[in-house]
Write a protein that binds this DNA or RNA. Structure first.
Lengths: 231, 231
DNA sequence: CGCCGTCTTGACTCGCCTCAACCTCGGTGG
DNA sequence: CCACCGAGGTTGAGGCGAGTCAAGACGGCG
């Protein structure tokens, strides 16, 4: 196994205050691994034996209902910790993490969590800041689901995606990982049919351009209007 | 100001491992206060200067959309910490906390948070366990809102309420704080009209008994069936 | 006693889900 | 190299769940 470079962790908030030596320690305990598109990193309900840091790619966090429907809880981008059940005193993962596109992640044994927290200055604080952001995001989704119409929810979901994972291309911003109509419907609590209809309509109006598992937004401002249209 | 009794905090998880002397220290720094029904403890967006422990009553945590609609994020029962923005690295409260019925709470300056965490064994761990539970609950609500019908969501909301705040009375379990149709609709993302119709129908079937700001469940089992009815 | 907040109930409407059929494209194997 | 196949996407028709509009009853509090 080739040695991991210290510069990998340097810019990531939880590790920002650490010395080169400390980062070396942390890296030496990490297990790197590649995941194929669609592969599960861990499964809902499984023992939370490890926690993860995504180095490259995008992770989709999914929950499955008893009746087999899927709901996308959130997406994780590179540089973010995930699977941090140990941080919240849980012994099992609350959701399934699936690689959306090819991914590269480090992982550590869950038993190291409290070691990191107590030994490394700023690690806990920064990590809980991340948790706080996710909680805030979840709260917003609850409010959205409870008050907005499907059209607005889909518009907002796309806007969130381009903010988090947008990549500038000529004539717009591309969501930089494979994203099907079905995926979007699972993020917004609707059906792939309705999403397809909306994207078709928006394409005609020049707001988005989309294809097989690919969505680019060409006119974000119009989407903002749609997403916040009152009543 | 009369001295608070140490036995108040003893049974509460974050303080369970502490000595009598430590609890005394903590109590001496606390400010107790009573809140009238409907009074706000703190407001969404305000500087998070204090964090709270609810000693008695029930707190409703509410978010307001730009268009003025309200969404109930969760309810807090006695013995729970709330307004713990500092724990998640936030400097403002993400939601408004309103007393549902008369309440009594202690509060501490936010600057004491990191003191508590570092000085008192088990405080951090137990608190983050609480956060974990709330995150799990939020996740469940997202899944519910995204996949279930209104009838099922209302049934599940009532079940959650009787589990958390239920009080046995003859012929059923009463939700032990004032809860209007409007409140229930704000918890489930629907309208007070629909909630009223559902409760009327359930009352005819002998599943609930309800009145002005009062709901009691007489047949929880039937509600469970309604709440998980497939398709 | 009168008023206002809460609750109820009917009638109507429409957003979005369901059902169904078909299209398109990329990958695979003969 | 081409034919096939299946996953993903599109689009129409129809129906119903639940929101909106509207009117009135109930009941607690000042």
């Amino acid at each position: 196994m080739s040695k991991l470079d210290e510069s990998l962790l340097r810019p990531i908030p939880p590790f920002r205050k650490l010395s080169r030596i400390q980062i070396r320690e942390i890296l030496d305990q990490a297990t790197p691994r590649r995941y194929d598109s669609g592969e599960a990193v861990f499964n809902e309900g499984a023992e939370a034996e490890r926690f993860f840091l995504l180095l490259d790619g995008t992770i989709r966090v999914v929950r499955t209902t008893e009746s087999g429907e899927q709901v996308v809880a959130l997406h994780i981008g590179s540089g973010q910790l995930f699977g941090i059940a140990p941080a919240l005193g849980r012994s099992t993962y609350p959701a399934t993490a699936v690689a959306a596109g090819e991914c590269l992640a480090l992982s550590w044994s869950a038993s190291l969590w409290h070691v990191f927290v107590s030994r490394y200055d700023g690690f806990a604080t920064e990590t809980y800041r991340t948790v706080g952001n996710r909680v805030a995001e979840m709260n917003n989704r609850i409010v959205e689901l409870a008050t907005l119409h499907v059209e607005q929810r889909v518009a907002n979901a796309l806007l969130r995606m381009i903010n988090q994972f947008g990549k500038k291309v000529e004539g717009g911003v591309l969501i930089d990982f494979p994203l099907s109509r079905q995926d979007i419907s699972e993020m917004t609590g609707t059906t792939l049919h309705t999403v397809s209809r909306l994207l078709s309509a928006w394409e005609k109006q020049g707001i988005v351009r989309s294809g097989r598992k690919r969505v680019a937004v060409t006119d974000p401002h119009r989407l903002v209007l749609i997403g916040s249209a009152q009543s």
